[in-house]
Design a binder for these strands. Structure first.
Length: 116
DNA sequence: CTTTTGACTACCT
DNA sequence: GAGGTAGCCAAAA
């Protein structure tokens, strides 16, 4: 399995793949995903791509993507926003005040896990 | 083709 | 310690 994500012509697809690889009960940050695809400074691009997940097949678990502080910054873009926290809690992730609890425990580093 | 915005992050005050 | 500004890349107007 090679699939050099960095070779992806479409930056969106690269992001989608990384997010799709996030294990259940784990979350990651925009910066981590961005770094994994080679866009360390493109953290905003990651979030921007998330807007394209609506209608993308297969479905992308963007609800597992939070900011570096574990805050559900993009929950407002969900429909409904509450569903994002519900999904996270359902996977065993504690979310309090729109913030992921035990972030260091549920944090999933794509670069490290995927050994890119 | 130029300008603005954006689900972020890091540095500076 | 908290808040604000700048930087980053890419897409939409």
């Amino acid at each position: 399995m090679k699939t050099p994500l960095k070779d992806k012509d479409n930056i969106y697809e690269a992001i989608f793949e990384i997010v799709r690889l996030i294990p259940k009960g784990r979350v990651t940050s925009y910066g981590a995903v961005a770094a994994a695809i080679g866009a360390a400074s493109g953290a905003r691009m990651v979030g921007y791509a998330m807007n394209h997940t609506t209608g993308v097949r297969p479905k992308v678990p963007v609800h597992r993507v939070v900011n570096s502080k574990g805050l559900l910054t993009g929950k407002h873009h969900f429909s409904p926003p509450e569903k994002m926290q519900q999904l996270l809690e359902k996977e065993g992730i504690l979310v309090k005040n729109d913030q992921v609890q035990d972030l260091e425990k549920v944090y999933w580093d794509p670069m490290k896990e995927l050994t890119i």
